[in-house]
Amino acid sequence: MFVSLPAILRVPLACLLVLVNTVCHVLPLFAFTLVRIVLPLPAVRRASAAILVHIAESWLTVNGWLFDQFTPTRWSVEGLDGLGRHENFLVISNHQSWVDIPALQKVFNRRIPFMRFFLKSELIWVPLLGPAWWALDFPFMKRHSRQQIEARPELRHQDREATRRACETFRRVPVSIMNFTEGTRFTPAKHDAQQSPYRHLLKPKAGGVAFVIDAMGDTITHILDVTIAYPGGPGTMMDMIAGRVREVRLHARRLPIPDAMRGDYDGDAAFRERFQAWINQLWMEKDARIAAMLGPA
């Protein structure tokens, strides 16, 4: 609808409408969060949690509509058949850009349970969104450098405990837990520094995936393996709003979690080796898939 507008008008208008949409959804979200805090009864908490998710999904729906109206981005999506809102998923994906997050939200919103991301603790201070993520039970994680962990080994377990507490909450409601398995966004410099064996990917960090599977127990039975590719190259969020991300290609596949992939990742060396081999195999397949997705559609 607005794609034909000159960029000098289209981009500020798009940003303004995204902001207005955010404010219009965040304010009622905060109101119901206050009710949940003031009346901490189980029935009230369950009802308010469902309402909060509905508000968040409405916000994502409007954002997706705005992207469709203001950007010429072409979406090529495969693998949505057989997905449902009443099954828990661990969503794993490669990570190239901040565009990945709104892309995942646009494609999977209301097709699977509402996605929760593990966020850096500093993001709690993002205006409007930080408190909204907290209200929606997004887990906030402290990131520690290798030097900090070597100096204080107990820090290694803080994020694990935060993950376990979050998963205990997630076990009570339908949820999709999002994990960018590389741990950081792909860049050529990071790829070279890692000496990654993959052409289009960084090395996967298997420990986080294993820990979520263990913490969720039998309430999560499938992984949703997502691969994202940008034939014109990944861009920034501003590139997306400005219409410079010309195409997003996304492939999803629903994979059962084998019983052999459930175990003590930290304490069982044989299981750890077996689990890493499984994730590495998935990453080899993902690397080949990206190469095919970057070819002609």
Score class of each variant (00 low, 15 high):
G64F: 05
G64P: 02
G64D: 03
W65S: 07
W65P: 01
L66V: 03
L66Q: 01
L66N: 04
L66W: 06
L66F: 05
F67T: 03
F67L: 15
F67H: 11
D68Q: 13
D68S: 14
D68L: 10
Q69P: 06
Q69C: 15
Q69Y: 09
F70Q: 05
F70I: 11
F70K: 03
F70H: 07
F70V: 08
F70R: 05
F70T: 06
T71Y: 06
T71A: 14
T71E: 06
P72Y: 05
P72M: 09
P72A: 13
P72D: 12
P72W: 04
P72I: 07
T73N: 11
T73F: 06
T73Y: 04
R74P: 00
R74F: 00
W75H: 09
W75N: 13
W75D: 11
W75C: 12
W75A: 12
S76Q: 14
S76P: 00
S76Y: 01
S76H: 12
V77Y: 04
V77C: 10
E78L: 08
E78I: 07
E78W: 09
G79Y: 02
G79W: 02
G79R: 02
G79L: 03
G79D: 02
L80V: 04
L80Y: 00
L80G: 05
L80M: 09
D81C: 04
D81Y: 00
D81V: 07
G82T: 06
G82P: 06
G82V: 07
L83S: 01
L83D: 02
L83N: 03
G84P: 01
G84N: 14
G84A: 14
R85H: 00
R85P: 09
R85D: 09
R85G: 08
H86V: 00
H86G: 11
E87Q: 15
E87A: 15
E87N: 13
E87R: 15
N88F: 01
N88E: 06
N88S: 14
N88P: 02
F89H: 11
L90W: 01
L90C: 09
L90P: 02
L90Q: 03
L90Y: 02
V91R: 01
V91P: 01
V91I: 15
V91C: 13
V91G: 05
I92K: 03
S93Y: 05
S93W: 04
S93V: 13
N94W: 04
N94T: 08
N94D: 08
N94S: 11
N94M: 08
N94C: 11
H95D: 09
H95M: 14
H95C: 13
H95W: 11
H95G: 10
Q96E: 12
Q96P: 00
S97F: 06
S97W: 05
S97H: 09
W98L: 11
W98F: 13
W98G: 09
W98I: 05
V99S: 09
V99W: 04
V99G: 07
D100F: 05
D100V: 05
D100L: 08
D100S: 10
I101Y: 06
I101L: 15
P102E: 07
P102L: 10
A103Y: 01
A103E: 02
A103Q: 03
L104C: 08
L104Q: 07
L104R: 00
L104G: 12
L104Y: 01
L104N: 04
Q105P: 04
K106V: 12
K106S: 15
K106R: 15
V107S: 08
V107N: 06
V107M: 10
F108N: 03
F108A: 10
N109D: 08
N109I: 05
N109P: 06
